[in-house]
Amino acid sequence: MTQTRVRLWNIDEYHRMFETGIIAADERVELIEGQVIPMSAKNPPHAATTLCASDYLKRLLAEVALVRVQDPIQLSQYSEPEPDIAVVRIDLRKYIDHHPAPNEVFILIEVADTTLETDRKQKALLYAKAGIIEYWILDVNQRQVYVFREPSSEAYNQEFILEEDTTLSLVAFPEIEVQISQLFP
């Protein structure tokens, strides 16, 4: 049996693809483990939830963290995903010279309406391997939050689901309570 070797792209090559027009500037893609992956379209419930959750988190975390919306983070030389929301360390220059790295990330959040399984399997593994301390999936359809904590090289060791009527504290900011209902429109 003949095996085909897959050519993986690194971040520098990925950026050059945009600079040279191989990938159009308005194409919605992200680099995941060396592969250029198309991103799902955002329907109205996804967009509304992303806006609602990011606005709420910006108010809650105004003095302690920066909330980025649908911007890249650099997990490794081969992964530059664009999570729906990234809560990162405050950088006075707003990350003008680099995208946040795992040691600068407090939590990543994906909003799922049609992508729940991909977010639970592919993204959770990617983020766990990178050592992201906390990862949430906002399930638009069930109005609940999947919470992932305690990353290892193989998975998150802790996973649980919270209903809309509960509260949750962030690992990085245990004194701040997040009302799950406020994350959804």
Rank of each mutant, 00 (worst) to 15 (best):
P174I: 06
I161L: 13
Y156S: 04
Y135E: 02
A172E: 12
L138N: 05
E154G: 08
L116I: 09
N157R: 14
Q142R: 14
D113Q: 10
Y146P: 05
Y127W: 09
L162S: 03
N157Q: 15
H99I: 06
K129M: 11
L162A: 06
I132D: 02
V145F: 13
A130P: 15
R120W: 01
E104A: 08
A124L: 00
E110K: 05
I176Q: 08
T114S: 15
A130F: 08
Y156E: 05
F160G: 05
E154V: 09
E154P: 06
L168I: 15
V171G: 03
H99E: 13
A130G: 14
I176R: 05
K94H: 12
K123W: 10
Q144G: 12
D113R: 06
V178D: 10
I180G: 04
L92G: 02
A155V: 03
E117A: 09
V147M: 00
L126D: 04
T115K: 07
E150D: 15
F106P: 07
E104H: 10
G131H: 05
K129D: 08
Q142K: 14
E134V: 12
I137P: 14
Q144L: 04
R143Q: 15
L116C: 08
P174S: 04
I96V: 14
E104I: 03
L126N: 06
I180L: 01
Y127F: 08
E164A: 07
A172T: 07
F173M: 05
A112Y: 08
E163L: 15
F160I: 08
W136D: 06
A101G: 13
T167E: 15
R149L: 14
R143K: 15
L170Q: 05
Y156C: 05
K123Q: 11
T118F: 14
R143V: 08
S169R: 03
W136I: 09
P174Y: 01
R93G: 04
E104D: 09
I176D: 06
Q142H: 13
Y146S: 06
A130T: 12
R120C: 11
H98P: 01
E164F: 11
K129C: 11
S153W: 12
V171F: 10
I180M: 02
L138H: 06
D165M: 12
Y127E: 12
Y95A: 07
D165Q: 15
P102Q: 11
E164D: 11
E154T: 12
D165V: 09
W136M: 11
R143I: 10
